[in-house]
Amino acid sequence: MFGFYKTTVGKKIVVASTGVVLFLFVLGHMAGNLKAFMGFNAASGRYKLDEYGEFLRTMGHEVMGNYTALWIVRVVLLLCLLLHLITIVQLQYQKQRARPIGYAKREYDCATYAARSMFLGGLLLLIFIVYHLLHLTTGTLHFRGFEEGAVYSNVVTAFNQPLIVAGYLVAMLILSMHLFHGVWSMFQTLGLDTPQRNKLLRTIAAAASVIIGLGFASVPIAVASGFLNLGQG
């Protein structure tokens, strides 16, 4: 069964399928972030974003207790990320090996910058993910009165710092580029591309990268511009 993983095509299918999981996660994460714009729930006296955070921590608690479902999702995501990364490092090695002597002159007809920077972009995203977890999940690198569970105020205090906003925006640009080529590549590698469907698949990839990039960027921008603030509470 693991003979499948030995070939380059098998490895690419692993990268694409873990990519699907990671893509669905960023899509869901982006949509969840938009809860920040839904403001304050007067009935419960809490921000809607905080309630959403609590929902994520307690989902499935009727069956398996708090945090269990959340940790299952986290472990699955971590495994996908590791598999995605390890496989790509192996493929990158095979790529380097395939052309020991390069060209003196090299022109590209259609290989986009996004496509050519997938490996570097991916590594930068990995660094960002580690930082982001320490910043807004554990609060270790928050430094502005991080409070477990107070998602909305943590976000607002975090993004009141222009340098951090700039850093996040750069990271989202890199993510957008990664998805621009990654999503299309995912369709192609999983064998879904046909001449009739090619344009549609490329459009979906471009649209997904723009929507996810802008969706993520909207929260730090809204905080930095003062549109989202702690006044409502």
């Binding site: 095979q94 395939a98 290989a111």
Partner: peptide, 18 residues
Amino acid sequence: MIEAMDREMFGPCTNYGE
């Protein structure tokens, strides 16, 4: 044929389209 392709040490495809 894919095994043979890998044996020859061609690189992996990353869908550039070049």
